[in-house]
């Protein structure tokens, strides 16, 4: 699974331009689903299984897109001014490297600061792609880029840019591979788009699928670093079952079911309360006449930095929990 993770996290797919990542997923899942299509927003939607009398139509969602930048202006000396796509933080930028969707690479520089204690604002930064004039700059206004950083395997801990949310894309691919033959459910694996800019892909996918139940798979923050946030979730403590986040309250019946499933199968789990941020589950929940929805999270340190860290054991436990969940009837009570 690690080589798949590496391939996914090293692909460049900022929101709205997920094509390269989607191609990797398409190749990986070839022959695994019963039916698949790409919708108007670029979501890759794969159907698997048939709905038995005691089964549900289930939407699983993991987003392919990552945060990034977009060129807004090329100045007369060939420096690229940019703005952000999704929640990029300025203190993670200076000195970093980016790769544009068209393959061009560059480094992020910044104007001289009055004080070294200050952080560059986005307006004070630019991308240097090695050009010396507007005319020879290979980037044009509107070109998008992702951050560039190689995958790092620390054994139990894996580090990369875009672990948010390629690690969950890998989880969904693995869950599709291990799809239980006896599952009573019709399951839609949605590799969604434009999550980082407002959960847009999941909005339209959920409308089209009209599921009975929705589960997003995404990363969540942890509280286990020096003077970190006061938060119970930690790396290596198991799959995180979301109770709430900044945008939604998980369906309590689904939370109970997931907890029971984890306990029955001896899958390590932890309960997650995240005070900021949200996932695709928010929009699935209020689709059409309403959908019971929740989220299984992979704990992740340093989210929205170029070095997001997850625990490989947690990743495997999320796959186990998903597979166990799909293997039998789901009762919401």
């Amino acid at each position: 699974m690690k080589s798949l993770i590496q391939k996914l996290v090293e692909s460049i797919g900022p929101s709205g331009y997920e094509g390269a990542t989607r191609e990797i997923v398409r190749a990986e899942i070839a022959g695994l689903g019963d039916e698949q299509h790409i919708d108007a927003l670029g979501n890759l939607i794969v159907r698997k299984g048939h709905k038995a009398a005691n089964g549900l139509r289930i939407m699983l969602s993991a987003h392919m897109d990552e945060i990034g930048i977009i060129a807004t202006h090329i100045d007369e000396n060939g420096f690229v001014r940019f703005t952000t796509i999704g929640g990029v933080r300025p203190h993670t930028c200076f000195g970093g490297r980016v790769q544009f969707v068209n393959g061009v690479r560059g480094v992020i520089g910044g104007e001289r600061l009055e004080s070294q204690d200050k952080v560059h604002t986005f307006e004070q930064m630019y991308i240097d792609v090695g050009a010396s004039s507007r005319a020879d700059c290979p980037v044009k206004v509107g070109d998008m880029a992702g951050f560039e950083r190689p995958f790092l395997d620390l054994g139990n801990r894996l580090v990369a840019k875009s672990m948010d949310d390629r690690i969950s894309v890998a989880v969904l691919i693995e869950a599709l591979r291990q799809f239980p033959a006896n599952s009573p459910h019709e399951v839609y694996f949605v590799f969604s788009t434009q999550e980082e800019v407002g959960l847009r892909g999941a909005t339209t996918a959920a409308y089209a699928i009209d599921p009975d139940l929705g589960i997003s798979v995404d990363v969540t923050a942890t509280g286990d670093m020096p003077k970190g946030p006061k938060m119970e979730v930690g790396l290596g403590k198991g799959a995180a079952i979301k109770v709430r986040d900044g945008g939604m309250l998980s369906d309590p019946r689904l939370v109970r079911f997931l907890v029971n499933t984890a306990e029955q199968h001896n899958i390590p789990y932890q309960l997650e309360i995240l005070e900021g941020g949200t996932t695709d589950a928010r929009v699935i929940q209020i689709t059409r006449a309403g959908v019971p929805a929740g989220c299984i999270s992979i704990p992740c340190r340093y989210i929205h930095s170029p070095s997001e860290m997850v625990d490989y054991g947690d990743v495997q436990n999320v796959v186990r929990l998903l597979t166990a969940t799909l293997s039998g009837p789901i009762t919401l009570e």
Partner: peptide, 16 residues
């Protein structure tokens, strides 16, 4: 339900 968080019931009940 859920008015205080997402207006969830306000969206979904009229849809139904």
């Amino acid at each position: 339900a859920q008015e205080e968080e997402t207006l969830g019931g306000g969206f979904t009940s009229p849809f139904e």
